[in-house]
Amino acid sequence: MTTVTTMTQWLRDPAPRSRLQARAGQLWLGWLRLRRNRLTVIGLSIVLLLLLVAAFAPWIAPHNPLAQDLSQRLLPPLSPGHLMGTDEFGRDIFSRIVFGSRITLYIVTLVALTAPLFGLIVGTVAGYFGGIVDQVLMRITDIFLAFPRLILALALVAVLGPGIENAVLAIALTAWPPYARVARAETLTVRSSDYIAAARLQGAGGARIVWGHVMPMCVPSVIIRVTLDMAGVILTAAGLGFLGLGVQPPLPEWGQMISAGRKFLFDQWWVATMPGLAIATVSLGFNLLGDGLRDVLDPRSSGK
């Protein structure tokens, strides 16, 4: 108990004694603000649940997700030993969803790491330097934005060949332009501020200003955008899976599972519905979390 109170005191110290403590204190304050909104906490719980399920999949899943048992095929939910029923090959749907969370998480993480970073760099460089650099970078962005996302991803996968890595690559390549736009807009407002002028007066070069001064101001809006887009990424991945262009069978990918269940939709509804529910829940979780992060990370609200 006493260690907890000293810890909170350390975090709340208005006069931090080290860089680490200052950072931790800011995070703690953010957490306190985040905690105030119940919907955000629900969103965060769903995302944490996804992480836990993915991490402990082998211990949670009662069956091997790939093991077929044709004598047990198409069992309804709540059958003994099969919480969510079985699919047309007699595989346990619950186990497949549990293991499928790993694939979903893998795709989401890779996209969330690559696309925003790329978009951020393109947007801040275009916004800060302006002129011809801006023109060229933003026209390229426009070209990517001109295509519907799924169609572009489809085209890319068609060229690269189906598979999980290529799906990730295709989604990332279609996801970065909005981040570039957000980052550029933010950069334009930051660029003319006094603190950037002060950095220039100290002799800081363009790269230093973009990386150390402009980007930290753009990160919050990009992070919010990313969390809100995660639902879209999951759906695109599922869409590619559904069309047979993403993760290949027999790997348990949620979209691909829906696709397989489509044939039995009227008689064995659960085969397609269960993975659908998983997609809906996780998408909702990311959306709720993104909404809450907007309140916490918005620089204008993090004042006094």
Binding site: A22, H213, M217
Partner: peptide
């Protein structure tokens, strides 16, 4: 040789840098 102090102290410090970072930045640059 030449440095400047701006009018609005609310706008001239980077809102996401600690005072430590703000003051050590010119040292790092040079």
């Amino acid at each position: 040789r030449v440095q400047m102090v701006f009018q609005d102290p609310y706008a001239s410090l980077h809102p996401r840098h600690t005072i430590d970072r703000t003051l050590s930045e010119p040292l790092a640059i040079h």
